[in-house]
């Protein structure tokens, strides 16, 4: 689902927001809010269908697997010593079931600093912006990985 022509250093992809995927994700994080689970409840609140939970767009990994992300964006991380350090989302609104989001991913930050136990730690932040069918911004996700120093367990 990744399109062929796109700027260097950027991956464009589509993320369909399917109702059953939204409901499965919501149940996997113990959600019981009806706006995420029951279309009628969402419609009553003025939304077209169930809303995706705030962290739902992590499912972008289905559209762009790790190997592809690494090859295309070229961070060259050693995943044997990579930790998920931080995650941030900035929302205009939550996605709703039935829409297809357009995602654009790039490396927003890549820097090293001294670790507490010696050795350099590298921080890489992937930024993904999601827009809707009208091209309006829906949300932006920041996924920060930490590559720990080689000599630190």
């Amino acid at each position: 689902m990744v399109s062929a022509e796109q700027p260097q250093g950027e991956i464009s992809f589509q993320l369909p927001v399917e109702r059953d995927k939204v409901q499965d994700f919501a149940l996997a994080i113990g959600e019981d809010n009806s706006v995420l689970l029951e279309p009628e409840a969402a419609i009553t609140l003025g939304f077209p269908d169930v809303l995706a939970p705030p962290t739902f767009t992590v499912t972008q990994i289905f559209a762009v697997p790790r190997e592809e992300r690494e090859t295309r964006l070229g961070a060259n991380l050693d995943y044997g010593r990579v930790l998920h350090g931080e995650q941030e989302f900035i929302y205009k609104r939550l996605p709703f079931a039935g829409e297809v989001l357009q995602g654009r991913m790039r490396i927003a930050k890549d820097f090293t600093k001294q670790g507490q136990r010696g050795g350099e730690m590298r921080f890489v932040t992937y930024e993904t912006t999601f827009t809707d069918a009208e091209g309006e911004e829906v949300l932006t996700a920041y996924y920060t990985l930490i590559e720990t120093a080689k000599d630190v367990g």
């Binding site: 809010n33 706006v35 995420l36 609140l45 939304f47 809303l51 939970p53 705030p54 962290t55 931080e86 995650q87 941030e88 989302f89 900035i90 929302y91 609104r93 939550l94």
Partner: peptide, 8 residues
């Protein structure tokens, strides 16, 4: 959740 504008 519809009221969230940022979550980190």
């Amino acid at each position: 959740p519809q009221h969230l504008r940022r979550f980190k």
